[in-house]
């Protein structure tokens, strides 16, 4: 793997804002998270059953959820770009492009396996714990361990 590639994958998940958020201003993200978590539970997206029904093509529900979320997302991002809408702090909105590497294939398949087993992507894990299924703390810790081991082995893995 060359250096430029390394740099790109190393900054993923790092936000584009140049502004530093203070403790108080971070609370607004918590508020968005709360609403998001409620939607997760109320739509039963965090249910293991819904994920099985999706992967066994028994129900349209999850396809409807993800599909309509993507449509709303595409329209919103196009509006933001077309009208050059700024953030509430007046900053230009920057979205980091995703660069292709083979990790998206190998890692993608591996995550797909984990998604079908646990019935959860990283977001739902937090909501599942909130619903009182405390054993999911172990799943979350294991996911953190997985991320850590990836960081450890990163330079030895094909990208």
């Amino acid at each position: 793997m060359n250096n430029s590639e390394n740099k790109i994958t190393d900054t993923e998940g790092i936000n584009g804002s140049q502004l530093k958020d203070s403790g108080i201003s971070n609370l607004k993200y918590m508020l968005v998270g709360i609403v998001f978590g409620i939607v997760f539970v109320k739509a039963e997206i965090i249910s293991w059953y819904r994920i099985q029904e999706m992967f066994q093509l028994q129900s349209f529900f999850m396809y409807g959820v993800i599909g309509s979320a993507v449509v709303v997302g595409i329209i919103s991002v196009q509006i933001i770009k077309r009208f050059n809408i700024k953030t509430i702090q007046g900053e230009k909105i920057e979205i980091q492009p995703k660069t292709f590497n083979k990790g998206q294939i190998y890692g993608g398949l591996l995550f797909g396996f984990g998604w079908a087993i646990t019935g959860a992507c990283p977001g739902p894990l937090f909501a599942q714990i909130g619903t009182g299924v405390t054993v999911i703390v172990v799943t979350l810790l294991s996911a953190i361990a997985g991320t850590w081991v990836y960081g450890l082995l990163k330079n030895k893995l094909p990208h």
Partner: peptide, 24 residues
Amino acid sequence: IVVGGFMVGFGTRYAGGCTSGHAI
């Protein structure tokens, strides 16, 4: 619980994102 969780954490980072970061 454990092996599945590990695959979620390892796989999403290897892929550079999960359902939210990539799919949405």
